[in-house]
Structures are given as C-alpha cells and as structure tokens.
Amino acid sequence: MKITRKDFLRISGLSLLAAGCKRAAESVSQPASSVRAASTQPVRWGMVIDLSKCREKDGCNACIHACNAAHNIPQIANHAHEVKWIWTEPDATVFPSAQTDFAPQTVTETKVPLLCNHCANPPCTRVCPTQATWKRDDGIVMMDWHRCIGCRYCVAACPYGSRSFNFEDPRPSIESINPDFPTRTKGVVEKCNFCEERLARGLKPACVDACPQRVFTFGNLADPESEPRQLLRERFAVQREPELGTGPSVFYLV
C-alpha cells in the first residue's frame, strides 16, 4: 500500500483533531471539584465570628497580624495596590442592607473583620478561565498561584471585595518572610485560603488561634455537632449579602 502525501497529511490531521477532541471531552466531563475522591465524611469548613466579643477589644487586630505573618502578606503603602486576606471595615460598610437610620454610632462604626467567605456557590470560581481558583470538596475556595494568568475576572466577580491582585512584586513589602509559606509573584490574584496549609496539619486557622477574645469559631458546617453549628443553633447570625445566592460559609453573630 502506498500512502500519498495528501493521504498522510489527511490522516495525521484527523488524528491530531481526534486527540484534541478527546482532551476537550475529558476536561469537560471532569469538573475540577470532582478530582479529589469524596471522603466518607462530608466536610464543609466554616467560621462563626462573634462581633459582640470583637467589640470588647476594638482595634486589637491580632487576627490580621497573625494572618499577615503566616502568609507573607505584603504591607504596601499605596492603598490602590493593597493585598488583604483578613481586614476590618466599619459595620455599615460590611452590612449595608442591614442598617437602620437610627442605629447607634457605636454599632455602625465598629470594625468588623472581613475575609473570603468561601461561598458554597462561589461566583469567582465560575468565571475563572483556567480553573486557577476552584472550590474544594471541603468547601475551601482555593487558589493555584502557579496557574493564575492574572486576568482579574475573579476580582470583578467577587461581591465581597475579598480578592487582591499583585500589582507589583510583593517581596520588597514583606517585613520578614515566613519560609514555610510561599510569597506570591507580581501579576497573580490572591485571597484567604482558610489556612488550608494549617488544616492539613490538624491546626486551626492562624486568625482563630491568634484572637485573644476567641471571637472566631471554626469547624465543619456539615457536622451538626460541630462548634459553629452549635453556635448557629443558639444565636441569630447573619451572612454578608446572602441574597446573591453565594452561600457564604462565614457567619456573624451581631
């Protein structure tokens, strides 16, 4: 059998096409979240923040410092380029729709700690064109800084302002580097990872451990007997903008 040049080109072109189709079909049929085999016990990490306890020690910021040190968060002087994982904002900013015109200033102006909500239905992971951010089976909205192309679509999609972009090389703005955690490079997006690296070692998130008031209660929301679930049973809690259908895993006791 003799293969003409035309046949050869045709066969090789078709094989390339078939290989490409196979890859595309695989990637479509296998969404990122199902990569990890489901464990026997469902886990959904979540956090309850007790604002009444936090108010008692206004301006303490121990949680922020602990997070900054653990994750090499740069302290950038230019506010436009700031990187924040956990930070505080006035109550009126965090819960704009929960305000009455007559609330006392002590409430509207208290600082409320903010972080990524690790939504059950995250809008940020939906828009990512490279699956550089995705929701893990344990509910953590994770970032892969090796894959992020820096398009900032997730920044636009996040309704909570939880995502920061590295507008410059963060290293010069880190006072002392924690060698156990990578810094980031310029041009990628980052955010709170619920201390995924500490959870893997059986520890609680850095902010939880650092708080002198024990404001943060961290645990498995899928387990009805967990600490956060008990708190949520006993007291009235709110989430940030639940009307958007994102299902935040961070709850606030007001």
Binding site: T130, C148, G187
Partner: peptide, 19 residues
Amino acid sequence: DLGQPSRVLNIILYPSPRS
C-alpha cells in the same frame, strides 16, 4: 491586561467552559 501573559495558553490547556 494580563498579569502573567506568559501563562496565557492556560486558557487552552485548562479549558473552562463555565467561564
């Protein structure tokens, strides 16, 4: 506009039809 233009092919390498 990309922060990491050298990784632009990730859009094709990791196609994400939800995006």
